[in-house]
Amino acid sequence: MSYTDAFFYFFAALTVGSALVVTFSRSVIYAAFALLFTFLGVAGLYVLLQADFLAVAQIMVYVGGILILLLFGVMLTTRVTNAEITTGTVQGLPATVVVGILLGTLILLVSRATWNVQESLPDVTGTTTEIGERLLTTFLLPFEIAGILLLVAIMGAAMIARSTDKTKEAA
């Protein structure tokens, strides 16, 4: 087993294991911290797939942004008087059965299909340059639209989240 394979199994175990904690942990805080390790594991898988830019973007956006946002969400939407912030589940059995069937189908499909895979994989020395070039040439329109979308999302989130009393004062 080569080093690459060993690292793959390590990161895959990290990702899947912490995703299991996210799905089944009763404590919301534990789930949020397990999500951190899921994101880190996915970033490791990106590195193994030689996607260096995406790995860094994954850590910066998901761990540095989205996870912090989710933790704020947890803190702001629970009464912190009780130290144990737990959450219940609904429809545990039907959901598990349906998801089990779904997972079985996916695994069967993925392992049986013959993918159009290139035999010799070239090693790349970095993807950032080419991603930057493509963002400003082929993908220029989606890039600009994504910028506008982010601006609208920020403004929309601020509008929605601000307290309703202030809206009345302003009006």
Binding site: T23, A32, L70, T89, V90
Partner: peptide, 28 residues
Amino acid sequence: VAAILFSLGILALATRKNAVMMLMGVEL
């Protein structure tokens, strides 16, 4: 790995009561 992660995300989305936990499922 992606298939397992997807299934766990769906499961979290379907079974969790807490809306923030459902968002974590979407992220998965």
